[in-house]
């Protein structure tokens, strides 16, 4: 494949990853949001793979495989199983103002672009333009944490942030050192396990995964004489 084609393929994949971040933010069905997250993981892995081929950087093959198996297969599967065991497969969690959240997310993308502009002008790597996209994915993940009320969806936002950070590492410096990458990957995996335990604890104590109920419980306690 020609280098030109590989370069434009990276751009397309990165743009699709950005769209997946929007899907995680706006998708009301939990299972569909998990699928969007899985697609995002697969797209980030594909970006890594394409950069590895284009720059002939063999160490990136390993991170591509790691990302794909963790972010696109294992963690979505774990979340999927959790959602089914919690009986939430048909649960709808609409953000309060979906359009407003989307518009805000578009604003985030522009902010990320403005922030990264000096960096882009000084960099020579062909992936320099993706740095803004990856920062935008991080910010949209953060926004998902803020806007969503459902604990599973918030975890998705958190994991999407990690995807964005990984994309930034790949596009800005062609990957982190392998030790760091492995450490982060297993941290995320442990986090996914812990979140599972946390979901069950949360449901036992407040009988729901709607995080907004947490402060309502406080008020109820204050109201008691």
């Amino acid at each position: 494949m020609s280098v030109q084609l590989l370069h434009s393929l990276v751009l397309v994949l990165a743009a699709l990853a950005l769209f997946a971040a929007f899907a995680v933010l706006g998708q009301a069905r939990l299972l569909a949001a998990i699928h969007a997250f899985a697609w995002q993981g697969a797209l980030v892995a594909a970006v890594t793979l394409t950069v590895a081929v284009a720059e002939s950087a063999p160490e990136l093959y390993f991170s591509a495989v790691l990302t794909f198996s963790l972010k696109a297969l294992l963690i979505p599967w774990m979340l999927h199983r959790l959602v089914r065991r919690l009986g939430l497969s048909r649960h709808l969690d609409r953000p309060q103002h979906p359009m407003l959240a989307t518009v805000f997310a578009v604003g985030m993308v522009m902010f990320a672009y403005w922030l990264v502009l000096p960096l882009v002008q000084s960099s020579l790597a062909f992936t320099r333009n993706i740095v803004a996209i990856s920062l935008a994915v991080v910010l949209i993940g953060l926004l998902t944490l803020v806007v969503r009320r459902q604990a599973v969806a918030q975890v998705l936002g958190f994991m999407a942030m990690e995807n964005g950070l990984f994309l930034a590492a790949v596009s800005a410096t062609h990957g982190m050192p392998l030790v760091v990458e492995l450490g982060v990957a297993f941290d995320v995996l442990i986090a996914a396990v812990l979140f599972g335990v946390f979901f069950f604890q949360l449901r036992e104590s407040i009988d729901s995964l709607d995080v907004d109920r947490l402060d309502r419980l406080n008020e109820a306690r204050e109201d008691q004489p």
């Binding site: 370069h7 769209f19 359009m99 989307t102 578009v106 993308v109 522009m110 333009n129 996209i133």
Partner: peptide
Amino acid sequence: LSLAFLFALIGLISHVILEQGL
């Protein structure tokens, strides 16, 4: 239709962000 709008908006943004200098 807002999905259509979002597609168009992401297209516009990715033109500005991703395709400069190509």
